[in-house]
Simulated scan of single mutants.
Amino acid sequence: MTTQTPDSKPRALIAMSGGVDSSVAAWLMQQAGYDCTGITMRLTRNETLGQSGFHTCCSEKDIEDAAEVAYAMDIPYEVLDFTADFREQIIEKFVRVYEAGGTPNPCIDCNKYMKFRHLLDWARAHGMEYVVTGHYARVEQDEATGRFLLKKGLDEGKDQSYVLYNLTQEQLAHIRLPLGGLHKTEVREIAEQHKFVNARKHDSQDICFVPDGDYARFMEDFTGKHYPAGDFLDESGRVVGTHNGAVRYTIGQRKGLGLAMGAPVYVCGKDMQANTVTVGPEEMLFDRIVYADEVNWIAIPELTGPLRVTARTRYHQVEQAATVYPAECGFRLEFDQPQRAPTPGQAVVLYQGDTVLGGGTITRVEK
């Protein structure tokens, strides 16, 4: 990192996705006296994916919008090509997890490997102190311990702390999240006041490389494989129908099964080796114990004994009361009440109040 002289401005790299949030984050940092440079990461190419890229992030249209906002703000702007790294670290892992029977979370991996690793490295190499994003979360430093803390965004409906649980102390020290104390309505108002081209742009809703939501079709196109049909089984192991390939189903799924069994059934399990999908009543989906590995602690250096927490096993889930215990490869989380469909491959994030304690990747669940 460069050392600032008293009369120089701190330098910040603004990760500009082309959306309204990152554009307003750039404006707020400029107003706060930072010397800003806008950067868009090119992660995929639309023609490679066979997609228009509409309503995703990092499309050609997003690059145009980000460039226009940067021009209006009179700040330098560049597009950095990370398509090869994104393919290797995000897309290929996405395919591996689905093929192993899990449900991946590529947006969390993208934050970990792409946004806050590659961008921070690039910022340092170009003499910039901070990486800034439009996430709705807050970073604060604990005066007593000196540790950097990740806290929920004040707009509960937009809080994105769940997808940032992998941030390290080193990264948190050099990250600025200027939207953490704002509500989305305030952000759009700022964008409209300054006539940003994306002031009313829809938020991206889908995984950027699967914007139509058809994961299995994308995987078949990407790998050249065909995922064959197999047996639907009931909870006793009896064949009750034929599925279209086990990778096409997720734990807890009800729609699209094509089964007439006299009562609603849900996907309760998958055996990828046998290519079977087990279905059953909703009560089969509930588990109380979750094991996690690939753990990252933020508010504490490590877990040395049981702690009371609240936890989410899905992005927008309401937090649930639980106790976390150290385990050999990570932690064991015991919920006070059974939870619906905690799924291997997904993140489980632990909170104490509005502070992220840490989190990990779900490896298995128990009743």
Rank of each mutant, 00 (worst) to 15 (best):
G181H: 14
L154D: 12
P211Q: 05
L164G: 00
L154M: 14
G181I: 10
I190Y: 10
Q141N: 10
Q160T: 12
V163H: 07
L167K: 00
Q205M: 13
A199L: 09
D214V: 06
C208L: 14
Y165E: 04
S161E: 03
I190L: 10
D155C: 07
H202P: 13
G153C: 08
G146F: 04
P211D: 05
P178T: 00
V210P: 00
E186G: 05
L164D: 02
H183C: 06
K201A: 10
F196C: 03
F148A: 08
Q160S: 12
L177C: 06
Y165V: 04
E143V: 15
L177S: 03
L177I: 05
C208Q: 03
T145R: 11
H202C: 14
E192W: 13
G181M: 12
R176K: 14
Q141K: 12
V187W: 01
R188E: 09
A144M: 12
S161F: 02
R147F: 10
H194T: 08
A199H: 11
I175H: 01
Y162L: 04
E156Q: 13
Q171T: 09
G153H: 02
L177V: 04
K158D: 06
A191F: 02
Y162H: 07
V210C: 09
Q160A: 11
G146R: 06
N198T: 06
D159S: 06
D212N: 08
H202R: 15
K158N: 11
L167S: 01
H183Y: 13
A199P: 05
F209A: 04
A199M: 06
A199R: 10
R200E: 10
L179K: 02
C208G: 08
K158P: 04
A173V: 05
D203Q: 13
F148L: 12
R200K: 14
R188T: 08
A144F: 09
L150A: 07
S161R: 00
L177D: 00
N198L: 03
L164V: 02
V197F: 08
V187Q: 00
T168H: 05
Q160D: 13
E186N: 09
A173K: 05
Q160C: 11
R200G: 14
T145Q: 13
G181P: 06
L182G: 00
A199Y: 07
E143L: 14
G213R: 03
L179E: 03
R147K: 12
I207G: 00
V163W: 02
S161V: 01
V187G: 00
Y162P: 00
E156N: 15
Q171L: 07
D206P: 06
K201P: 06
C208T: 08
H194D: 06
C208N: 10
E170M: 15
F148I: 13
A144I: 13
V163S: 12
G181N: 14
Q205Y: 12
D206F: 07
G157Y: 09
Q141W: 08
K195Y: 15
D159W: 03
D142G: 09
F148W: 15
L182Q: 02
P178R: 00
S161L: 02
K195Q: 15
T185P: 06
L182S: 02
L179A: 03
G213H: 03
E143A: 14
